Amino acid sequence: MDRSDYQALDTGAVLAELGDLASAFSLVHLAECDSTNTRLLTDLPPDDGRVHVVAADVQTSGRGRRGRVWQSWPGASLTFSALWRFAPGSPVPAGLSLVAGLAVARTLEELGVEGVQLKWPNDVLVHGCKLAGILVELTPGRGRTPAAVVGIGINLQLPPDASVAYPTGVTDLATALGRAPDASRLLGLLLVQLHRLFDVYSAAGFAALRGAWQQRNAFADLPVYILGEVETLAGTCAGVDDDGALLLRTADGLRRVLSGEVSLRLA
């Protein structure tokens, strides 16, 4: 695919892809912004019953977990954030990034991508290489409705000279599919999956989706280590438990690791 063939995101096409769910979303498309997560967090939309989505062709200060920068080039990626409000008593934030990752994985599989894997807690891989990342940030305690901003970045077609640091390498959809998919259709399909899975999550917690996540666990039964601020843990990846915590089988028994400021690596 020639980069000149890239078609910018079209809000009308996204809403058409959403079908009957179109009224459940408010979609704002920006040619450029600092960070879509920051935009939603600093200017919190009203609670009008809709999921508020901000998508940008380019983010100048996009970010990921642990202070990392999400690099952005025009036409290279789909980057957006969505504000999800949950009913009081919903299990926020436990497992939220894992549910979002599962939604991305199912969308990619629907498009025909093979070898989709999930790396705890927030990366989506294809044959071991990173294709998408997720950043979940809770809203700063305004009102009584639990809410979170879920930011997602998916590599569509990286420039030939792009240099992105990742332990096992990066890839894009142009490589996985032989072509870069239409960004508007991709966003519409993904919002449908997010809506569906977050409904399940709100009603039944991560436990209802745990099995589907485990089926795609990139490091299932493999030796791994956890880099944290205090200690480094080594063991075998035993999956995740019902609240989304990583289970690590160590010489001292089974350890639970929460998704704070830690990093999971193959040993």
Rank of each mutant, 00 (worst) to 15 (best):
D252I: 06
A76W: 02
L247R: 00
G115H: 01
E231H: 13
D2Q: 09
I226P: 06
D20W: 01
L96D: 00
R66F: 06
A94I: 00
A132G: 12
G143K: 12
A87K: 02
R68I: 12
I226Y: 07
Y201W: 13
W73I: 10
L227R: 06
V262Y: 00
A8I: 12
V14M: 09
G19N: 09
V240D: 04
L27K: 10
A94L: 07
L118Y: 00
R106H: 11
V53C: 13
L40M: 11
N217I: 11
D221L: 13
G49H: 09
Q214C: 14
A82N: 08
D5L: 03
G95V: 01
L21I: 14
R265T: 14
S77T: 10
T168S: 10
T79S: 10
H52E: 10
S97T: 02
A147L: 13
R3A: 15
D123F: 03
P140F: 15
T250G: 11
V113C: 07
A76T: 03
A183N: 03
G205C: 06
Y225F: 15
I226L: 10
V124R: 01
V230D: 13
L194N: 01
L264I: 05
G133L: 10
L177G: 10
R249T: 02
G253D: 15
Q215N: 06
W70H: 07
P146L: 00
P159M: 12
L227G: 11
S202H: 13
G12R: 00
G141N: 13
A94K: 01
F198I: 04
D243N: 02
L266H: 10
F86P: 08
A56H: 01
G128Q: 12
E231P: 12
L189E: 08
T175F: 08
S184A: 07
L186Q: 01
E17A: 14
L189Q: 13
R50T: 05
V150G: 04
C237L: 07
L131W: 05
V230T: 15
V113P: 15
A56T: 03
G143A: 08
D161L: 14
L189K: 02
A24M: 14
G128M: 13
V51A: 01
L190S: 10
P146A: 04
Y225C: 12
K119Y: 00
A55V: 08
D5W: 05
T36Q: 09
A212K: 00
M1K: 09
L18V: 09
S35E: 09
D172F: 01
V257E: 00
Y6H: 15
D182K: 04
R50Y: 12
A105S: 14
A165R: 06
A245H: 01
A56M: 11
E109M: 02
V164F: 12
A176V: 11
L30F: 07
D242I: 03
Y166Q: 06
V240M: 03
A148K: 01
R179D: 12
V51H: 05
F198D: 04
G253N: 15
D243T: 00
I226A: 14
R144T: 08
Q214V: 09
L118H: 03
L15K: 09
V116L: 15
L9A: 14
P140H: 12
N217H: 10
A105M: 11
E229Y: 08
V124K: 00
R255Y: 10
A8M: 14
L227Q: 11
